[in-house]
Nucleic acid binder design. Sequence first.
DNA 1: ACCTAAAAGCTAATGCCATTAGCCACGCTG
DNA 2: CAGCGTGGCTAATGGCATTAGCTTTTAGGT
Lengths: 195, 195
Amino acid sequence: MPRAGLDRAAVVDLALAVVDDGGRTGFADLTLSAVAARAGVAVPSLYKHVAGLPALRREVALVCIEQFGDALRAVRQTRSGADLLPASAQAIRHLARRVPGRYQAVQSAAWVHDPDAVALRDAGARVVAELSEAVAALGVPDDRRIDAVRAVRASVHGFVVLELDGGFGMPDDVDASFDFLVAGLVGGLERLSVP
Amino acid sequence: MPRAGLDRAAVVDLALAVVDDGGRTGFADLTLSAVAARAGVAVPSLYKHVAGLPALRREVALVCIEQFGDALRAVRQTRSGADLLPASAQAIRHLARRVPGRYQAVQSAAWVHDPDAVALRDAGARVVAELSEAVAALGVPDDRRIDAVRAVRASVHGFVVLELDGGFGMPDDVDASFDFLVAGLVGGLERLSVP
DNA sequence: ACCTAAAAGCTAATGCCATTAGCCACGCTG
DNA sequence: CAGCGTGGCTAATGGCATTAGCTTTTAGGT
């Protein structure tokens, strides 16, 4: 009957561990049962620290989104100009492959319609702003910025999702395909740049 | 106590109706309860026609994938050459917007790892083959075919997913952004073509 | 026209999950 | 040392999928 000594942060950490151990479906499979088992605690005890499963999902997703934002900010410390966008794209894919469950948490953009997810939307907007910087560094004119950022997000996100879901049937080198995609993206956007 | 007169196909049709009525989360929210309610039947009765929820999901997904394949084949009847790929991309997005729940069914590519989903993988391969035709019609050399098809799939799929999830925060014209993406894709791939 | 057997429905029971209510004991604070 | 807030518990409820086993329709053969 000793106490487990949980608090909000500890519960979120355990949930992150569940997500990470769950592979590509870790976030979808996140369950209060699993977290409670890891904490060595009965399920209802978790309600003393988090408001329920949806709230826990939001907190987990927030951590994940911020982790992605941090990764992009780190890239911006070491790269600039035309190198920034490809390095950012590679960073996103690397991170997604390393912690696929967390990437799904970010992707689960059900957040957009969730009134309780303001913090998540803000964090997401910061990630997009980071990408926008990278696009700007390519010299894309302002009136094409939004289109260009959307194209980058769509391409990279689509690639990562397909790859994580095993959607690329052929055994051919997936790294090379990603390089091809990124090179095409950078080339196409550079061609828009004002001389 | 009259019979409902269900059979496998009728149950799948009802499930499709549930998916369609459920909007962008229709497939995720597909439930035996919902189908049974629509059929005017108790839940266990459905087991006389389908093997369970996972099996029903597979059958629904198969219909959806084939619907996408049909749409692409229809495009190929009316377009050719460099027009084929952009028209195919537009067809995919249009269909996804019209029946977003079905698009999610296609996307739920958990199928790849599911040993019971051979038919689904085959149908998916046929859709990819259709896109491969469109890429070939742009004159992309054979040794770049796979990379190019992956880039197309990633871009279009990523765009559609982000759009359906409401991921494009800015109010700016999403149609124009998609046209921009497709134009960039076509331009980039044409530039690879053997003269 | 009947009789039979398979097929299609049902209810009941089980188990997993989230959530709520309400109880108890640990352990800090005065 | 007394008291109280907090973190844990058990019990109960409700939604879902699934399995077992029963009943009745209905189609088909004689």
